[in-house]
């Protein structure tokens, strides 16, 4: 019976055994617990007292191991640190589902193979220059400023909550995912790593620019790693190393230059410069839109004070002298 100090939690738990079931189903349970009880504890109570067949993955119960990431009312969360009270207050129930973007092995347990493959692909280890190996037994201290550049990335516990929340991961197999890119950032800024430039060059054509900067990863991350912001940093560093090499960096640079002298976006010019000769393929769509929106191909008036914008550009993004 629920008492004043407890909340009666209506649970709807995703159940699926691909070896037996044709399709997944949602099983309802009701458990009375204190409002601060984590979702994980409620699931373990269900398994211990009601239904021993429920499969889930967990270990430390202290938000350190990253094992119990799952979807709680459609949000990717660590079940061990998500209290039931606010969820029931907001939704009237708790729907528990496995993480997204990974195939379900059984119930709440997913196959993390692809997640780890993408992580391996960024080569998540220090690559020291073989000509200058770190001498055995010698401490190699970093300056505080160098440590500062790691930002929040060492906090990552690889729980894959960001991977589950990411719409680019679900729409395109070429996207490495937020966690792999945040880890890549961590090695790119490591002063001991000798492969910084190569790493940046490689990632430019290896999915970096498929990030939508939707920040859903940053919302989902239980450790506040803020992957979307580190992906932004990687983009700027990649451009600094290599300039425009593929559509993403070409578009960012074309956009930057688009505003330099006028202060306002010229939509038509942007398309022309991003697509280059391939803009021809975009013409039918452009004409279709222009029938309703004739401004599409008009050149906008420069803003008042466009010279101020140009001077800000001169100070912070000086034009390179022509070669």
């Amino acid at each position: 019976m629920p008492t004043e100090a407890t909340v009666s939690v209506p649970l709807e738990v995703y159940r699926f055994d691909p070896s037996k079931d044709k399709e997944p189903r949602y099983q309802s349970y009701r458990v009375d617990v204190a409002p601060h009880t984590p979702v994980l504890s409620v699931l373990l109570k269900v398994r211990a007292e009601i239904d021993p067949t429920l499969s889930l993955r967990y270990s430390c119960r202290s938000a350190i191991c990253g094992s119990c990431a799952m979807q709680v009312n459609a949000k990717s969360r660590l079940a061990c640190e998500t209290p039931v009270g606010p969820e029931v207050a907001r939704h009237g129930k708790i729907v528990v589902e496995p993480m997204r973007n990974q195939p379900v092995l059984r119930d709440l347990v997913v196959d993390q193979k692809v997640f780890w493959q993408k992580y391996e692909r960024i080569e998540p280890h220090l690559k020291v220059d073989p000509r200058h190996p770190m001498p055995e037994g010698v401490v190699n201290p970093m300056t505080p400023a160098q440590v500062e550049r790691f930002r929040e990335t060492p906090r990552c516990i690889a729980c894959a909550a960001c991977f589950s929340a990411c719409p680019a991961v679900s729409a395109d197999p070429e996207f490495p995912g937020p966690m792999a890119l945040a880890k890549l950032y961590r090695f790119v800024v490591d002063p001991r790593d000798a492969e910084t430039q190569n790493r940046l060059v490689r990632i430019q054509t290896d999915g970096l620019w498929l990030c939508l900067r939707c920040h859903l990863c940053t919302e989902a991350c239980p450790k506040d790693v803020r992957p979307s912001e580190r992906i932004r940093d990687l983009k700027e560093m990649a451009i600094a190393v290599q300039g425009a090499t593929e559509p993403g960096s070409r578009h960012a640079i074309a956009f930057e230059e688009n505003l330099r002298t006028t202060g306002i976006l010229n939509e038509f010019r942007l398309a022309r410069e991003t697509y280059g000769a391939a803009v021809v393929k975009e013409l039918p769509q452009g004409l279709r839109i222009r029938r309703k929106k004739p401004e599409l191909t008009k050149r906008p008036h420069p803003i008042d004070g466009a010279d101020e914008v140009e001077k800000i550009y001169d100070a912070l993004a000086p034009k390179e002298p022509p070669a």
Partner: peptide, 9 residues
């Protein structure tokens, strides 16, 4: 997009 190319700018 400008943010991706040059945050301070």
């Amino acid at each position: 997009f400008v943010d991706e190319a040059n945050e301070v700018l």
